[in-house]
Structures are given as C-alpha cells and as structure tokens.
C-alpha cells in the first residue's frame, strides 16, 4: 500500500520519459478511445512496462518497446499516457 502510493506520487507523461528509460503504464484514459483500443490489442494496458527507445525528429513519433514488440505513437498522445518511472 505504502509502495503503491510512493509510485503514484511520481506519475508523469510517457512523452517526458527519456529514451532508454523504463516506466510502468498507469493510466490510458486521457488518450483517444480508438488509440486505447489499439494499444490494448497490442498488449499495452495499465501495468505494462515500457521502455522508450527514441523520439522522431521535429516532434515526430515516439517509439517504445513493450513485451518485446516495438510500437510508434505520436508524441502528443504519448503526452496523455500516464506512467510511473521505474
């Protein structure tokens, strides 16, 4: 319980995680429903652990790794995904 709160306290947006760092997904409610559906289809849900791989040029898409697969989404949407850094 205590640990849970400690982690809750450090929530941040996926877009602000630096390449190479990992984070656990906390909330997907901010992103568009269709994108949420697709992320769920790909196995990205609350509790999944992501590693940010790289950022595209000129604010281009963010690429992350989740359970061995690489996925690219727009930085704007990544800004609405809540994660807790690990």
């Amino acid at each position: 319980m205590f640990r849970q709160q400690a982690v809750e306290g450090r929530r941040q947006a996926l877009a602000s995680v630096k390449p190479g760092d990992s984070a656990e997904v906390r909330g997907l409610n901010g992103i568009s429903p269709m994108l949420r559906r697709r992320l769920r289809d790909l196995g990205v849900a609350e509790g999944s652990v992501l590693t940010v791989l790289r950022l595209g040029p000129f604010g281009g898409p963010l690429t992350f790794e989740c359970a061995g697969q690489h996925i690219g989404i727009r930085r704007e949407e990544a800004g609405r995904m809540e994660v807790a850094p690990l």
Binding site: S32, M34, L35, R38, L39, L42, P61, T63, Q69, H70, I71, G72, I73, R74
Partner: peptide, 10 residues
Amino acid sequence: EPSLFIVELP
C-alpha cells in the same frame, strides 16, 4: 476527425 497514428515496428 483528427488523424490517428499508431504503428507496430516488426
């Protein structure tokens, strides 16, 4: 609608 982008990189 706004466009949507998500891609799997195999």
